[in-house]
Design a protein around this nucleic acid. Sequence first.
DNA 1: TTTTGAGTTGTTCGA
DNA 2: GTCGAACAACTCAAA
Length: 507
Amino acid sequence: MLVILHHRVSPTGYNESNETFIVTIERCMLIHWFRRDLRLRDNTALLKAAEAAGGAVVPVFIFDDAIIRGRFASPARTQFLLDSLAALDAELRALGLYLVLRRGEPLPTLIRLLRETGAGGVMWNRDYTPYAIQRDSVIKRELRAAGYRAESCKDAVIFEMNEIATAEGRPYTVYTPYAKRWRARFASDPAHVQGMPRLVAIPLPASEPLPAVTDLLPDAPVTLPRFPTGETVALDALERFVRGPLADYATARDLLAVPGTSRLSPYLRFGVISPRQCVAAARAAPPGPGPESWIGELIWRDFYVQVLYHFPHALRGSFKPAFDRIAWPNDPELFAAWQTGQTGYPIVDAAMRQLQQEGWMHNRARMIVASFLTKDLLIDWRWGERHFMRWLIDGDPAANNGGWQWAAGTGTDAQPYFRIFNPVSQGQKFDPDGVYVRRYLPELARVPTRYIHAPHTMPGAEQIRAGVQIGRDYPTPIVDHATQRARALALYRTASRPNDAATEQYA
DNA sequence: TTTTGAGTTGTTCGA
DNA sequence: GTCGAACAACTCAAA
């Protein structure tokens, strides 16, 4: 029987005077399979594995081509993943360990690792997308059938699956009552933040080298937006946000030029930080509308995970099937103009260019460009969903799908059909000085503020003074908002009342 | 079972 | 310039 020796760690965490004892590897050593929980602190499955294995944990990450090259492949997000893995590896090296990297199908890869290390099982934190649920249930079944321990934990959300349900035990599909219930449950059953796991330095199998993005995605551009990452970077960002912008979050989060949002979304996406750490930090801050509304955003995150868990069909089509009938015109040229930020509506174009430059977009801007794509350009929200998933470093299937369906009015909690954003007035309201627009549209840098959100209305002399000719240096609007608004209303009305289709004609 | 109130983020029009 | 009303009807959740 294989045995290893290691230092015992007492339950209180103190190292007891070089006391050593023998552990049978088959019983004790465990693999922790990192997925979207790329941190050491407050990591539920990792803590559980460390506890069960007396600290003898093999930290593993597997590059799964089904995800990396799947429907929502993203060079920018893959870059962030690699940066986060490098940071996690550095954290582990400080403990005398390192991250064991593998590339391949998860199940056979895990079985090979179990044999190589002699570990007794695998622990991981749950992921709730349809693909992950299917994959993980097969893995759990097969590992157990082969005599290994295989366990998953709740970690990525505060409340999961059926923990927040209506009085009749059904999943909520409206945010407000869900949030009410969520807050009530949290008051009686709060999620506690845990600390570092107690890990011991054990011999590990060799790791494959950390790949480059182009190893995983051969067509990826050479230069990609980078977002600083790592557990300590994320915790520091949380602390600075809570000490600074959080108090004014309720109002400042809507101002595009102001750093009023947390910018923690990429960390939450990959579990570089935990939602429990976020809620705890918000509740430790002076109470007020700021912390409350930010917690509300974290509840939205749980809500959309829960919605997708119960209604996976939303990943392919409308949450409300009636809207699958919408006959989107889907003009590819209009779509290309939207993608590249050439629509002639500065607030839209600035936002789309921010996305491509930074791999991130301000939340208010996401709503504006989503409304514009669906209601002004009359393009299927799924085209926008895919584009966001390609470029957003924080791109998450549940939140992104939920947000797009909300904007398109096809999802849970659908906005009233008539709520169509006007891109000019949204710009005037949320970027009143045009600072955000000028930051991403240098060609409009010298346009006076009174014209900044509708530069095509500038008289010729003003254009000369501003050093820009609209129609040459910056596009005239590719569609007329008032016209498209009326078309969108008609399109939606027909979809929701199909019997009237014969009597309503529009083009 | 029936009823009732409410529904993240807005725009436009007319007085 | 400001203000209030209209913009559909429906579904959900809870009483």
